[in-house]
Design a protein around this nucleic acid. Structure first.
Lengths: 345, 345
DNA sequence: GACGTGTTGGAATGCGTTTTCCCCACGCAT
DNA sequence: ATGCGTGGGGAAAACGCATTCCAACACGTC
């Protein structure tokens, strides 16, 4: 059984079928400024329908010199943090009639840079990079992006203020500080924080901000645990903490919801009850944060909104130095009950 | 301050800079079958580096008549089910040197079809549609996809056996039956199931399979609740059930982890303890299933693997009728404790 | 009926690549 | 010398489309 492949119909095919020139066919099929005769419109449309014509977007792109795509690079699409961001970007793109091509950098700065270089080959309308969770120098990335905008592209980044491109970000330190104050206000006094590698801005800012908040509340001592920036990292750190005895800690703050959820698992696995024997708080308010029980106290970050905003920012040709700060807000849930939990003796 | 845009350097620029023809430049810059003189290679490479040349992939695509992209359409990228699938596809694409462009259909069959039509314009190397959670007739989609493969494209679908394209799927009914049997084996006798709209194959198959399993275990009666195919749907249905009194149910099976998690929330909000007052089970084993507490009993579906496999399947030019059945497996966790939970009186 | 004025169709040109096709020079055997 | 294969180079024709430029034509006005 032969598999016959007759290539996609081209504009020429449509034109011939309709008995008009390619020029007119092109004009009706993509709403040029020129007007076309009523009956010709009709005929072209019918021909296109009959042939199942779909314009070759690549050819269109080379002819026009511009595309209708946005390139999005994220660290890990399976992470709710990034998938929510991505959903926002997709929504914004949809609204603007753009389609998005996306690649994952797998939390490697080097891969991220290579990806941007590749994506740049598509001459996308805009490039958005959401890679706050990467480590290492961003010089290569900046250079790549700079070349892109020098050639007329629009770029935007998410969560990495300091880069010379329009940015949407949150005040990690401030938000963490607010959370600390809110928690202190609830009566908590003895804290431990779980954070990621020192090289990570996000982690550092949140940890520092939290500690600053505690200091402002008159709390000076606080245990700080270093670990991986993942759920398993949170599990490991919490396990360590528990093994060392947590007589002197009432509340465990992890710089990330994922880590906090890992920590909660460790607490449970140790036979303790999170929210009862020890309070837990996270940061990001990803979807699962409200599903775990006790529901996780955290700081709400408008992830979806941020993705959309990044699109708008890039599209609007914002000033490279513009940083759009998004509002955050501590949300206290049952993982940090109002009455100070009984310490386990 | 003028924003000077000098467009990206073209192959011509590189050729001129190197003092050779575009033909040779093209040959060295993308490894054609032709061989090029040693020194010319050197010069072209240096020129390209100096100019920061990045080939215009669109132009390349029109010239070659083929692209190196795969188009992926999912229902909702923020849903862990789909984002895990997407991660698998991305991994497979990466391995094949392809980049993926992706769009979300927002759980609308009509949008899904339109999206495929648009994506087709990019003449992608392969199209993968993962839309198991859609309702309604797929004829338009099938037609669109058929036109695509007729023109030489490779298509694959995930989780919708019956469509005339290579498919990776799981045996929903069988898996649900296995789960039912395993649960009956644990001693459970009184069940209720929460399912989605009747038009959804996935929902129907899982519910029917579960009931079949129960029957096989000698259990005939079972309450069935209809609701939305979402977490909130699960919440609503469970609330209804609880309001009606759940003296006669020990275990609540929701056809989806998301729905099950919603149900657990409802249980807790009613002042009961899931896993203690009533057992809960789901289906899919999405990430959050292991994070909630009690950890959710469910059937493990190799989502990530399925995404990757779909790529391979499409790439291998599989027979349109080929359905790759992926293994599933009930995983019993603490939301269905081994000792039958005490019924609440 | 000559002359703008507007509208519409088509031919031609260009976009950045790839890919034929042709040519040249060189080395080797006859 | 002549013939011939071969490795390497360039000119130019696609690729599928957008767009600019021109010609043709219709209409209305003086």
């Amino acid at each position: 059984m032969e598999q016959r492949v007759d290539p996609s119909p081209t504009l020429q095919d449509v034109a011939k079928e309709a008995g008009v020139s390619v020029a007119t066919a092109s004009r009706v099929l993509n709403g040029s400024s020129r007007t076309v005769g009523k009956d010709n419109v009709e005929r072209v449309l019918r021909a296109a329908g009959k042939l199942g014509y779909a314009p070759n977007l690549s050819a269109q792109a080379t002819a026009r010199g511009s595309t209708k795509t946005v390139a999005l690079v994220v660290s890990d699409i399976a992470d709710p943090y990034f998938s929510t961001l991505a959903a926002g970007v997709l929504e914004g793109a949809e609204a603007a009639g753009l389609i998005v091509t996306m690649a994952v950098a797998d939390r490697s700065a080097e891969r991220e840079c290579r990806i941007v270089a590749t994506l740049r080959g598509y001459r996308p309308h805009v490039i958005i990079v959401a890679g706050s969770r990467l480590d290492g120098p961003r010089d290569a990335l900046v250079e790549e992006l700079r070349a892109y905008v020098a050639a007329g592209g629009r770029a935007a980044v998410i969560s990495q203020p300091g880069l010379p491109f329009p940015t949407v970000a949150i005040d990690n330190a401030g938000a963490a500080k607010d959370l600390a104050l809110a928690l202190a206000d609830e009566g908590y006094r003895r804290f431990a924080v779980i954070r990621g590698p020192a090289g990570l801005h996000t982690s550092r800012d949140r940890c520092d901000g939290f500690l600053a908040g505690l200091r402002q509340a008159g709390i000076e001592v606080c245990r700080v645990l270093d670990t991986e920036f993942t759920e398993d990292g949170g599990y490991a750190a919490a396990s360590r903490l528990i093994a060392a005895g947590l007589d002197d800690v009432e509340l465990l703050f992890a710089v990330t919801d994922a880590m906090a959820i890992g920590a909660m698992r460790a607490v449970r696995d140790a036979g303790l009850v999170p929210g009862h024997d020890i309070a837990v708080a996270g940061f990001d308010d990803i979807g699962p944060a409200t599903d775990v029980s006790p529901a996780l106290t955290t700081v709400r970050v408008p992830l979806h909104e941020m993705g959309k905003r990044a699109m708008d920012l890039a599209l609007s040709g914002a000033d490279p130095a513009e940083v759009q700060w998004m509002p955050t807000q501590p949300v206290l849930r049952t993982s940090t009950p109002t009455s100070t939990p009984d310490s386990v003796s």
